[in-house]
Design a protein around this nucleic acid. Structure first.
Lengths: 389, 389
DNA sequence: TATAAATAGTTTTAAGCGTGAACTAATTAC
DNA sequence: GTAATTAGTTCACGCTTAAAACTATTTATA
């Protein structure tokens, strides 16, 4: 109801963030910033010098001489030491805690199996204790903690920061994790599902200019995260992207969700194992690539079911990029090429423009580090959400 | 690539629009505007007085006395005479042209069958001529034309304002209607599909606070428009919401889109007629309400197929409201109640929060008038799209 | 009827913003 | 060594919003 109008202070804040966003990827000179942001040279000088004084930026050094006439550019970069963010990845089998500074340098990481904790308070005590301990251990300034990101299995209430009632994950049932962490560490807390954090990774570190990307993670369930022009699309309640419950076969088995023949019953590794009797995905995909009959059958089944759901998503969201992550992200080119083929021949959208299907290809980058990204994103986007209504 | 940073002029513009947006629904006093917008009283005075000078606002009159101490509020309202917008609805069978002023008062409307035009230029000449003629006829000032909205059957390139290649609609094949109209009338032109314009109607004139609403129109095809917090969700290419091609039966008939068993083959009036041999929808729905066996069977078929697609949309978009418009918007309560029931028992989302299914209930308000809304929306939202990147 | 209290709206003043023009700084081409 | 070119700074200016003191108008109360 109440709006957030703009005053001059917020105006400045917004322009500062526009500069920050430009510098996130690589150092730039003041002159380049002026061109790229549209701000006057003098304004860039004022703002950047203030940010340097505050320790948020620093003068990286003179750019290489360019054979062009004129003074050499002084490159400005984001000062990683300005602050750091923490990522907590709550997984069904393990809890991980990690930290990176604002330019993504890893400061610490630690993983522990969930089996070690007998109840919520034990697990949460561990989290609190470990964060404090690691901050001290790494010699970090408590005041420079800019935010905590938490990724957890859905369903979540991202806005309120509550882990609702995830199946097979009783450890944090109905847990107000954002409030709890805020109370202890006095910093912004961002709760997201794992697909969203991985999608943010793709946006932050891999992609240049994505338009409308669906990030699909396949594990126990099948999650989807939609990123539109760098923004996470959220439904009414921050849930959205429940890809796993697209109907693949209206006459299929009953699913816990109330529907029949949901994608999750067909296109997960477990489902394929059950149906086709494989042990691991490597066996399946290698066999399929080699052209063996049985593995090919299984993969065709996967392509047909997952493909059908993706066609539905492409038609509804008008996607131009789909990124596959999770269980099937191994020798994934074979799968993605065939999924693309399926989508191309089954979607109306594809008659109008092209769609890409890509493997996430970030096996070096673990999901637990991605948990830091919502906090990083929060820092970089901070105070940009002024409201029109 | 290039950003649009904020300067003080744009800042003012934004705050002016925040005020305008508040006044769109009902007159308010300066004091109330101050509270609702968050702007200081003095700022509201400055801005509103300027807008009054420009003729955009006017003093409606003193509010009714309220038994409270203090000076009586002077209500401010939007001055309808400030300007007007034109809406052109290009339908397969008819072309309509209409105009309303900025507070929605109808200034003129005219409908003509498409059969009267033998080619594109004849039809477009008619449109140009009629607009000019009607503007003159109604005694309107050409300079006060604030924008033209065009609704047309998809596929469209809304951004570039091009009608692409709609099936069964050869009259405007690959027609750059926005450019053509801009050249003649020198004002902003907004091209949208009909579902979007109707959804905007729902947002502008009916709803108070919608969050995530899917607007479904059923006619020859089945279109969907998603409105999130008053913004139309657009996919990568302004298409999105291709609800009609959600797969309902993977083993169904081949569809022109390349897929099998698309919703459009089941849940349109034509499809139901083919399958169940009815003449009109009235017959079907009245029979179903009366409990007759055959009509009930047909309606159950409709509920199951349309319901399945809606479940898919609910799961993906995390909707909280679905509005049904078009062919089935007659005695629609019966249908919407049953669709809701179906969705509730088949969607994961519904286990977390409630979803509404409503008939659009705007049969008084014709689609051709809705064509004005993109232009109106453009006027009210103007210059609010500053870019972070 | 007078007065206090409350609310609406205006005026004045101040602090802060981005900008453009004029400036200095540093480099290359000739 | 000089001119041309690019990078970056300084400063006056016009603009913004906001806070405080102000006027205007109403109700409650005595």
């Amino acid at each position: 109801m109440k709006s957030s109008p703009l005053n001059v202070a917020e105006l400045k804040n917004i322009n500062r963030h526009i500069i920050l966003e430009k510098l996130r990827l690589c150092p730039l000179s003041r002159a380049e910033l002026s061109v790229k942001t549209g701000l006057a040279k003098s304004s860039v000088t004022t703002l950047t010098n203030q940010m340097i004084d505050e320790g948020l930026l620093f003068e990286v050094g003179l750019a290489e001489k360019s054979n062009k006439a004129g003074r050499t550019r002084m490159l400005l970069g984001i000062n990683g030491d300005f602050g750091y963010v923490i990522g907590i990845n709550l997984h069904r089998t393990k809890i991980s805690i990690s930290a990176t500074n604002i330019v993504g340098k890893i400061l610490f990481e630690e993983i522990k199996p969930t089996s070690e904790f007998k109840n919520t308070s034990a697990a949460f005590d561990y989290i609190k204790g470990q964060i404090s301990h690691q901050i001290k251990n790494a010699g970090l300034d408590r005041k420079k903690l800019l935010g905590i990101g938490v990724s957890a299995p859905g369903p979540l209430d991202c806005e309120k920061g509550i882990i609702l009632t995830p199946p097979n994950f009783k450890l944090f049932n109905n847990f107000k994790i954002a409030d709890e962490l805020k109370a202890v560490f006095d910093c912004p807390v961002f709760l997201e599902n794992e697909a969203v954090t991985l999608a943010l990774y793709e946006h932050y570190c891999v992609e240049e200019q994505t338009n409308n990307t669906l990030f699909v993670t396949v594990s126990n369930g099948i999650g989807g995260a939609l990123i539109k022009n760098g923004e996470v699309y959220r439904g009414s309640h921050g849930i959205s992207g429940e890809l796993g419950h697209i109907t693949v076969d209206p006459n299929g088995e009953k699913c816990a969700c109330g529907n029949r023949g949901c994608l999750e019953q067909y296109a997960t590794l477990d489902a394929l194992k059950r149906r086709f009797g494989f042990v691991g995905y490597e066996e399946m995909i290698n066999g399929a690539i080699a052209g063996e009959e049985k593995p090919l059958l299984a993969m065709e089944f996967l392509i047909k079911t997952l493909g059908a759901a993706l066609v539905c998503a492409v038609n509804l969201f008008d996607l131009d990029k789909i990124i596959i992550s999770g269980e099937f992200d191994y020798k994934a080119d074979w799968l993605t090429a065939r999924l693309l083929e399926y989508i191309k021949s089954h979607s109306v959208i594809c008659s109008m423009h092209s769609v890409e299907v890509l493997p996430s290809g970030q096996r070096g980058f673990t999901a637990h580090l991605a948990a830091t990204l919502p906090a990083l994103n929060g820092f970089f986007k901070k105070s940009l959400n002024f409201d029109f209504k």
